Amino acid sequence: MSQRPLNVGLIGGGGGAFIVQPHQRAIHFDGTRRVVAAALHPDPKVALEEAANWDYPITGYTNYDEMIEVESKKPIGERVDYVVVVTPNHVHFDPSIKCVRAGIPVFCEKPLTLNLDEAQQLVDAVKEAKIPFGVAHTYLGHWTSRFARFIVTSGLLGEVRWADSRYLQGWLAGRTEDAGVAQAEWRVDPKKSGISCCGGDIGTHALMQLRYITGLDVTKVQANLVTFVDGRLLDDHFTTYCELSNGGKALVRASQIAIGHKNDLGIEVNGTKGTLIWDQEFPEQLKILLPDQPDRTYFRGAVAANDGFLGDLPEELMAEPNIPAGHPEAFHDAYARLHRCFEQDVRAYNDGQPFSCDGSKYANVQDGLNGMNFIQAAVNSSANGSTWVDL
């Protein structure tokens, strides 16, 4: 028997915001979720106009306070089952914590909040409410990210000695913010972006990819944050040297002034038995390098168990690809996988059943707090001559 589609609300996303489109496509991807309501813009008039002009019928609200008040009073089945927060960083905390306190699950863009204090408050609220909460670290949604996590955490590479996790872009190499590019304007504004531009925006992705794939945490950081573009108040280049919870070492680095780089997120993990290489711009494949053996390249949809390197593979992992190898999944598919997994926990929450929200399928609120803690430690380290700072 089919289940009713979950009702999803959007907070933010008006004014031509890029990130709302991948989310709304991912929400509709499986036919089991649908956008039904939105508070799209801080200007109430614009919010209603944009909702009225949405590509399909939705209920528009003048602001997120109105949406939360109205929707939280409706019974389950009629109200929004979860909201997606796609606002700039300084408007993550307030709608998120209000939804949590109203009993509405939240899927929030990263970084979690504007500062560490807000992040801790949100973690406490989520724990008290016992409610699903996800953070949209997109690239965990690639199947090859899941596969990489299985390989490393099951010990196939041995003990992790070293990892290099990077995210390189070039779109802020000049004064992009002076060209009327809204996505640049708010990112370089400390009041809207927080204490770090490059680190908060994409360095958190590099950190999350490291933590997710290795299963390890960063325990100590030594950082150098640089602002190359004159007049900019926040970093546009972010480099950290890290100690890991198993005693290994890592680089977590990001740049938005690396001309020619577009969306170059990648990670290399060196273990005592071999090396793993994964690149987001080539998300269908994953490379394994072993001593005295030919290099191995695994492709999504064409992975076989017990091949001389891999042993048995989890049934759940192998069931995730839904199109054959050679028919590429991509960015929107990664978002859809995150929403699909979040949907499972929201349905369990609605039914009063246990749910995991444990970080194994999508980043949770604790992951968001860890990201904010990392950024704060990196900023402190860089400001104090790149001294070591404990997390």
Rank of each mutant, 00 (worst) to 15 (best):
I76C: 08
V85S: 01
V86H: 12
P88T: 05
L112R: 08
R101D: 13
K98E: 09
I76M: 08
E66Q: 15
V80F: 03
D94G: 08
I104Q: 03
R101L: 11
R101E: 15
F107V: 06
R101Q: 14
H90I: 03
L112F: 12
E118F: 12
K74T: 09
D81Y: 04
D94S: 14
V106F: 06
T113Q: 04
V100D: 11
G103K: 11
R101M: 11
I76H: 12
L112V: 00
K74F: 06
R101T: 08
V84C: 11
K110P: 01
C99Y: 01
E109V: 10
I76A: 15
Y82C: 05
V91N: 10
P88R: 00
I68M: 02
E78F: 14
E118M: 14
I104M: 04
D117R: 12
E78W: 11
A119P: 02
I97P: 11
P95M: 00
V84N: 04
G103R: 12
K73S: 12
I104F: 05
K74Y: 04
L116I: 11
K74H: 06
K110H: 07
I97A: 05
L112N: 07
I68A: 04
F107C: 09
V70S: 09
R79L: 12
P75S: 06
P88S: 06
N89M: 03
D81G: 02
C99N: 12
A119V: 14
V80W: 01
K74I: 08
R79K: 13
L112C: 07
V80T: 03
L112Y: 10
K98F: 02
K73A: 13
H92D: 04
